[in-house]
Amino acid sequence: MDVCVRLALWLLWGLLLHQGQSLSHSHSEKATGTSSGANSEESTAAEFCRIDKPLCHSEDEKLSFEAVRNIHKLMDDDANGDVDVEESDEFLREDLNYHDPTVKHSTFHGEDKLISVEDLWKAWKSSEVYNWTVDEVVQWLITYVELPQYEETFRKLQLSGHAMPRLAVTNTTMTGTVLKMTDRSHRQKLQLKALDTVLFGPPLLTRHNHLKDFMLVVSIVIGVGGCWFAYIQNRYSKEHMKKMMKDLEGLHRAEQSLHDLQERLHKAQEEHRTVEVEKVHLEKKLRDEINLAKQEAQRLKELREGTENERSRQKYAEEELEQVREALRKAEKELESHSSWYAPEALQKWLQLTHEVEVQYYNIKKQNAEKQLLVAKEGAEKIKKKRNTLFGTFHVAHSSSLDDVDHKILTAKQALSEVTAALRERLHRWQQIEILCGFQIVNNPGIHSLVAALNIDPSWMGSTRPNPAHFIMTDDVDDMDEEIVSPLSMQSPSLQSSVRQRLTEPQHGLGS
Rank of each mutant, 00 (worst) to 15 (best):
L74F: 01
D78F: 13
G81K: 13
E90R: 01
R93V: 13
D89A: 01
D76S: 15
E86S: 09
A67L: 01
E86W: 07
L92G: 15
V85R: 02
N97T: 00
V68Y: 04
D76L: 14
L92P: 05
D89I: 00
G81P: 13
E66D: 05
D76A: 10
L92K: 15
R69G: 04
D77G: 00
D76E: 08
A79Q: 05
D84K: 11
N97I: 00
E87K: 01
Y98I: 05
M75A: 09
N97R: 01
E90K: 00
A67G: 01
L63R: 08
E90D: 00
E90T: 00
E90L: 02
N70Q: 11
S64G: 06
H72E: 06
S64Y: 13
I71F: 03
G81L: 11
E86P: 14
V83C: 08
K73I: 04
M75V: 00
S64K: 14
F65R: 13
I71C: 11
E90V: 00
D95G: 06
R93T: 10
V68F: 06
L74G: 05
N97A: 04
V68C: 07
S88R: 01
D84R: 11
F65S: 06
V83S: 07
D76Y: 07
I71H: 12
V68G: 09
D77I: 06
L74W: 10
R93E: 14
L96C: 04
E90I: 04
G81E: 15
F91Q: 14
N97C: 00
E66L: 07
D78H: 05
D76M: 15
M75S: 06
E86M: 07
D78W: 15
L63N: 10
E94M: 14
D76C: 15
E66K: 04
L92V: 11
R69S: 01
N80T: 06
G81F: 07
V68Q: 07
F65P: 13
F65L: 02
V83Q: 12
H72S: 08
H72W: 10
I71K: 10
G81S: 06
E86C: 06
D84W: 12
E86K: 04
N97D: 01
L92T: 15
D95N: 04
G81M: 15
V68N: 11
E87T: 08
N80Q: 11
K73G: 08
D82R: 14
D78A: 10
M75L: 01
E66S: 11
E66W: 08
A67F: 10
D89W: 04
F65C: 09
A67D: 06
G81T: 12
V68D: 01
H72Y: 01
E87M: 10
E66N: 08
L74P: 03
D77H: 03
Y98V: 02
D82I: 12
S88W: 01
M75H: 11
V85G: 02
E94Q: 07
E87N: 02
D95M: 09
H72M: 12
V83A: 05
D77Y: 02
H72R: 04
R93P: 15
D82F: 12
F65K: 12
M75I: 02
D95E: 03
D84Q: 12
D77A: 00
H72D: 05
E87Q: 07
K73Q: 06
V85Y: 05
D76N: 09
L63S: 05
D77E: 01
I71R: 14
A67N: 10
R69A: 04
L96K: 13
N80I: 04
D89M: 03
M75R: 04
L63P: 03
L96G: 10
D77L: 06
Y98M: 06
E87S: 02
K73Y: 10
K73E: 03
R69V: 08
H72T: 10
S88P: 05
F65Q: 13
D95V: 03
R69C: 00
I71S: 09
A67V: 02
L96N: 11
